[in-house]
Write a protein that binds this DNA or RNA. Sequence first.
DNA 1: TGTGAAAAATCTGTAAT
DNA 2: ATTACAGATTTTTCACA
Lengths: 155, 155
Amino acid sequence: MTDNDQTPLDGVDRALVDALRKDGRTTLAVLSEISGLSLSAVQVRVRKLEARGVITGYRAVVNAEAVGLPLAAFIEITPLDQAQEDDAPERLRGMPGIESCYSVAGNANYLLVTRVASPRALEELLGRIRRTAKVSTRTTVVLQTYFEGQMTEPG
Amino acid sequence: MTDNDQTPLDGVDRALVDALRKDGRTTLAVLSEISGLSLSAVQVRVRKLEARGVITGYRAVVNAEAVGLPLAAFIEITPLDQAQEDDAPERLRGMPGIESCYSVAGNANYLLVTRVASPRALEELLGRIRRTAKVSTRTTVVLQTYFEGQMTEPG
DNA sequence: TGTGAAAAATCTGTAAT
DNA sequence: ATTACAGATTTTTCACA
């Protein structure tokens, strides 16, 4: 029961989730004020949100440049051999430099979000991807990041 | 001094950052064990990493479907009027549904990562983007997310 | 679910080495 | 940097409506 529970979130849950998305270290006391519930009740709510898989974890957000990965790129990939099973995502999972993997509706089959140290490292990553997943690649290099991971609610 | 300090990270800093990326709530006691440093020293280190802008914040990671935003899409945009100043990122900042904005090297000028509630909401978002930033759009819809925000170190 | 209060753990700051 | 200590804060647990 660590995932999937279609029970929709009520107003309080949404408020808690929003607060924790902005600051993953928001204390129960603050969450209590925000929601109007008691501290204990808030704790139970948060525990349930975690158990239901609504909140999947807590992460420190890191400056990519500061940790030596200043070069980001989107890489669209398409299997070379149509007959071959589509296990590209599984093959690429865990490969250093690959942050995310999506299947997409478009010319390419998959889209990867990657982050590496240098153009040279990107070249190496591309080679590794092509060999490992037997795919062709189309790379879009990121020149500047204006904002990332912004969280705006649809009202 | 909340940002930008080109001092490279040493091994301990890297270990601390890695641990906090995996779990933003890792306690100082645990970080102390991991790094081998005393709790006090670890506290100072983490404070400095935050002050230097290496760690920019802490966030709860949320299941997009659970919070009512099951439809993700990458939207490439290109200003319609060449003469017009390139202020698209500024115009789009904070717009509900837009998560990230990059300038990219490729056919398009910018790439947006978006997340909305439905195809209808995506249609509305596209309209809002075109009107607000005066751009043409090329949308790639995400069909499935295999993994996201994975953090693998280049060894 | 919810509340409230006590117990345990964690964080923060200071001081001496 | 390390250890040690004290006070404040936070989290956890328990009893109960």
